[in-house]
């Protein structure tokens, strides 16, 4: 009985992990595309927040989750293009530009939310047909009866909404694009040595714009997930630093898709566990403050950056505007 309960707890924690990790994974992949091209992207947070707002608003007005998704991706891409214009075309500071987008999103989503919906910054609560709802995998009831693997599939893998699966598929696709395609080759090259790309006859600017647009689309999906899949409305500041955690996860994964995925899952797991551990003493350790667990992703990233666990080497040309003429 006791062990069954424990198994149940473990499975539901893993289930929650997947749900919490979804926006992290999407944003980490977004950051990966941008930073591999040499553009620092601390604006994951702002793009995701604005996309969440757009998705929440459009879903509330039209009742269509698909239009909401399109709106989320669109607004996030527009912000990406703004970031690109500042960093690529005017050769502005990439960190400052990212920060500007974050601050702008933080203020503007609330201003517009209150102006349009008068609900204190929230968008109206959504009916289930305006949202992405959980999907049951086919034959899952039969599979669920299988020993061991069955409950895992039924509880952890099945029963999520479409966007969770999109996030999971985004990782192998990212890996494939980055390592197996012509675009990926050029992307990896332009973050290391843009001059080599330029002399090979490829436009550095265009390549970088493509990368930031992909980042925008992915952040858009992440924001949409927050507002109309995981939750039933946009709430003010609902990203709550997840964009930064995703950035940390991407650094933790050393700018590579699969390690970044693992870092996202680890950070998501910490988050899922933190809620369950509140007030529960662990054997041998005692009660672990929930704040410690919440701060762990940041602490671990700092420790990694300090070179105490492996060495995180960023793409060489990151943060440096490309200037051709002397």
């Amino acid at each position: 009985m006791d062990s069954l309960l424990n198994a149940q707890t473990v499975l539901s924690t893993l289930d929650a992990t997947l749900r919490v990790s979804t926006p992290l994974i999407l944003c980490a992949m977004a950051g990966l595309f941008s930073e591999r091209s040499g553009i620092i992207d601390i604006s994951l947070e702002g793009k995701m927040l604005f996309a969440a707002f757009a998705a929440g608003a459009v879903a509330a007005v039209t009742g269509s989750p698909w239009l909401a998704l399109a709106a989320g991706m669109l607004i996030s891409t527009v912000l990406s293009l703004l970031h690109g214009f500042a960093c690529i075309t005017t050769r502005g500071d990439q960190v400052v530009s990212g920060l500007a987008i974050n601050v702008l999103a933080s203020g503007l989503t609330i201003v517009l939310g209150i102006a349009w919906f008068s609900q204190g910054g929230q968008t109206p609560a959504l009916a289930s047909d305006a949202r992405f709802m959980p999907l049951e995998l086919p034959f899952i009831e039969q599979i669920g009866n299988l020993p061991f693997i069955g409950p895992f599939l039924e509880i952890v893998i099945s029963g999520h909404n479409l966007l969770v699966y999109v996030a999971l598929i985004a990782v192998p696709i990212t890996w494939w694009v980055v390592y197996k395609t012509r675009f990926g080759l050029r992307l990896r090259a332009v973050g290391e040595n843009p001059l080599a790309v330029d002399t090979a006859g490829i436009s550095v600017s265009l390549l970088r714009y493509k990368a930031v647009v992909i980042a925008g689309v992915l952040c858009g999906i992440a924001g949409t997930y927050l507002a109309i899949a995981q939750n039933a409305a946009f709430a003010r500041e609902m990203t709550a630093g997840q964009g930064y955690i995703a950035l940390a996860a991407m650094i933790f994964g050393k700018w590579r898709p699969v390690p970044a995925l693992l870092a996202c899952l680890m950070f998501g797991f910490l988050d899922a566990v933190a809620i369950r551990l509140q007030g529960v003493p662990l054997p041998g350790i005692g009660e672990v403050p929930v704040q410690l667990i919440q701060a762990l992703p940041y602490l671990l990233t700092v420790i990694l950056l300090a070179g105490f666990i492996g060495k995180a080497v960023a793409p060489k040309a990151i943060g440096v505007p490309f200037a051709k003429e002397r």
Binding site: F183, E192, N193, L195, A196
Partner: peptide, 23 residues
């Protein structure tokens, strides 16, 4: 004008790839 982290083959290919698939 070489990408130091790339293999020689990748450096030669860069910008002169004959197909969208690297393989």
């Amino acid at each position: 004008m070489l990408v130091e982290t790339f293999t020689v083959l990748e450096n030669v290919l860069l910008g002169a790839e004959q197909s969208a698939m690297l393989d």
